[in-house]
Design a protein around this nucleic acid. Structure first.
Lengths: 104, 104
DNA sequence: TTAAATATATCGGTTGCCCAATATTTATAT
DNA sequence: ATATAAATATTGGGCAACCGATATATTTAA
């Protein structure tokens, strides 16, 4: 997989990449969820469930960046925002709204 | 640059990629614009102007896909949506709203 | 006419998102 | 115990978005 963690200068949604991570942070801010639940929720919104090869690496990176926390329960892992993840999300939401304000 | 045009099964914003193209289509639906104007408008929303190496290849691809039209005036090229671009944008907007409904 | 400025275009390299396929771990049923 | 199922994880390959640098074309200024 080869994840090289570089210090993130900014937060998610500072460019048009990072939208999946932004969405994940947003969904976790409403309710802690397992990878499966997240992928179901995203699948419902988009119309197609992201494959495991999409969702789990994304979660791994967010965890390595310290934006989410993990809590293992049986065969599932429940994710929630860290304090830094919450701060990051707030900034990202502002940016997102500024960019897509009048689209909705 | 090497652009290989594959038939697009869907429209923009069917996954988390294609957000720049989606934004471009959206902005052009409100007003025809040159590459420079587009890049300024996006820069204002995002806080940073996309580099020429980002915006012009994107416009080229959209043109090759038949989603936008070009009109040359002096040293500028003005872009506007084609009929297919308008249809594509409508579908993309619906998807976008479904995915990001409660973020705004 | 030549020079400077502006808009557009391309190149090389990096990151993030995507899938299909496969593997691993854990829980449950037989 | 063994098989099955479910959640998580990894691999490999491709596309989209990004930048900095450089190049080309056109307009405007000197």
């Amino acid at each position: 997989m080869k994840i090289i963690l570089r210090r993130k200068k900014e937060v998610y949604c500072c460019d048009m990449r990072g939208m999946l991570s932004f969405l994940i942070l947003f969904l976790l801010s409403k309710k802690e969820m397992s990878g499966k639940e997240l992928s179901d929720e995203i699948g419902e919104r988009k119309g197609a469930r992201p494959s495991p090869g999409t969702i789990y690496p994304a979660l791994k990176v967010l965890n390595l960046q310290g934006l989410i926390k993990e809590k293992k329960e049986g065969k599932e892992i429940f994710y929630s925002l860290s304090a830094e993840g919450e701060r990051s999300l707030e900034v990202a939401k502002e940016r997102f709204c500024k960019v897509f304000m009048d689209v909705l």
